[in-house]
Nucleic acid binder design. Structure first.
Lengths: 296, 296
DNA sequence: CACGGTTATCTCGTTCGGAGATAGCGGCTG
DNA sequence: CAGCCGCTATCTCCGAACGAGATAACCGTG
């Protein structure tokens, strides 16, 4: 059982056909077939059920599939570890919630890239679930997400602590309560980590009905809040600029619903290559200076 | 980078020479050399420093080595997972402290093997450190050890809780304190998990000097205690037979030093093949019936 | 029934890896 | 210093394995 065998197996399983797999692997169908048959012969089990539309995994094949990816990851990490001579270099794929990226990360990443030009930092913004999934499938090295995260294959540490506050237009009726039945809340697209929290806050405030306005960017949200279209809930640091400009009014939430921790999650056991280790060392002073402890 | 390349690499690194590796791999030296050179060419780094006595790993080679083992493990687990059709079968390699094996495991293993004759259960007795090391290097599937265990790559659950008690000869001067300066303690060979605990108990009791007698088996220890050669500290259940026979007198310790947890440790992320999963299900009722909760 | 799409099988040519012999290097020893 | 021994590097030969292409067989669909 060689790695190339597992690669073809994985491609066939993913694409559902030997022809398609052959195209992706830059070879011809007959070779894919024979490789798979050889693998089946070696393992003594059928891995695919063949039919006229392609193939589908048998139960044994389904059990093998995760190991095919795992083996590929191991080899990829091996290659990286060999080339990693202790001086940070290569790619560093990070993920982040948009709020964290906007307010916390730029100075850290700027300082890091300045000190380590050999590292190609790649920052991808996404929602909590997507980011965590990408870390798990090795598509990201680490991600800044909204805690808590509890997954056996991940380890997380708190790097920032934020205070969630309500924001509404400075030109609205400030005597009325910000949250009432029929309030219109402005949030990011589905999957936003703060959205669930917002719903919980609404529930705690006794709001049973509310309208929702969704936007893809923070700027759009804040712009709409200014314009009085509704109320939003975001980390205070995201909103201070708008508050200083006199456009929005902030209202502290209090209670434990207001505290939100930003975690850096990464795969457990990934000892960490130089670039990631070094990046962490840039991150910790920021977090400490911010008064945030690091939890193991 | 194929798996066979990593296997030859691992053999060369472990044996310190291409000739020796060739002998182990049932091939000739020239092939080993060329495989290694091809690997070095592919990775763009020297993996070995050659000299007239053999080869030694470069730093890059040392970084690669752990991944070679890891890749081999992944493939071995893949093969097992494919052949594992949900009905427990194959080998199940367990490790245990001698005390646990003697008193707790026999009924569980007996019931398990009776119900699952297709599983070849293999029980190896050893000390805490050795067992944990063997679990880490995949030489054991799981091990019963003395807690607590805190290792990022292991997960543990409490399966038994024992009470440590002092035991001394029933024919000794029972009015004198069992633990005093100059006491002779009888323990297992170095590495015994209870020994450190015993030393702590002695310290807490204010004993500054004591003699040590080491034996390899529990029977020898208990025999010597009977004979009045010294005092030992073991789980109560190991000693009840001797107490009932009237040969030894047990003395509860009290305090948190007396409580000892037996953990089942296994590698994290190893989803667990059928045999191990099934064995766990045999274990849990025993632990529960014993009044011991299972901690995740 | 013909057609498009699929997998299985066969053959041919190339390539890759294993076996063996030899050369070259370095240290050790008499 | 010369000879020896153990090691790695390199070369050549050969067989097995792999990739490419063509063809057959199968199935569902229009």
């Amino acid at each position: 059982m060689e790695l190339s065998d597992l690669r073809t197996f994985e491609a066939v399983a993913r694409l559902g056909g030997m022809n398609r797999a052959a195209a992706e692997l830059n070879t011809v169908q007959s070779n894919v077939t024979s490789r798979i048959r050889a693998l089946e012969r070696e393992l003594g089990t059928e891995l695919f059920r063949r039919h006229s539309r392609g193939v589908e995994l048998t139960r044994a094949g389904a059990r093998l599939l995760p190991f095919a990816s795992k083996a590929a990851w191991v080899l990829a990490e091996a290659r990286r570890a060999v080339l990693d001579d202790g001086f940070p270099s290569g790619r560093l794929d990070l993920g982040s919630l948009e709020t964290t990226a906007a307010l916390r990360l730029s100075p850290v990443i700027a300082a890091f890239t300045a000190a380590h030009p050999a590292v190609a930092v790649n920052l991808r913004v996404g929602s909590n679930e997507v980011l965590i999934g990408q870390v798990l499938e090795h598509s990201l090295d680490a991600a800044f997400v909204c805690g808590p995260v509890d997954h056996p294959e991940l380890e997380a540490e708190v790097v920032f602590e934020e205070e969630l506050v309500l924001a509404r237009s400075a030109y609205a009726d400030l005597d009325a309560p910000a949250l009432a039945d029929g309030a219109r809340i402005i949030v990011k697209s589905p999957g936003c980590a703060y959205r669930d929290r917002f719903e919980a806050v609404l529930g705690a405030a006794g709001v049973r009905e509310h309208a929702v306005l969704e936007f893809g960017t923070l700027d759009a949200i804040i712009g709409c809040v200014k314009a009085g279209l509704g109320v939003t809930m975001l980390p205070r640091s995201v909103l201070v600029a708008a508050e200083a400009a006199g456009d929005v009014v902030l209202e502290p939430l209090g209670g434990e619903l207001a505290a939100v921790e930003t975690l850096l999650v990464r795969r457990r056991g990934a000892t960490g290559f130089s670039a990631l280790r070094e990046f962490l060392s840039y991150l910790r002073p920021v977090a400490d200076g911010d008064g945030c402890g690091i939890a193991a």
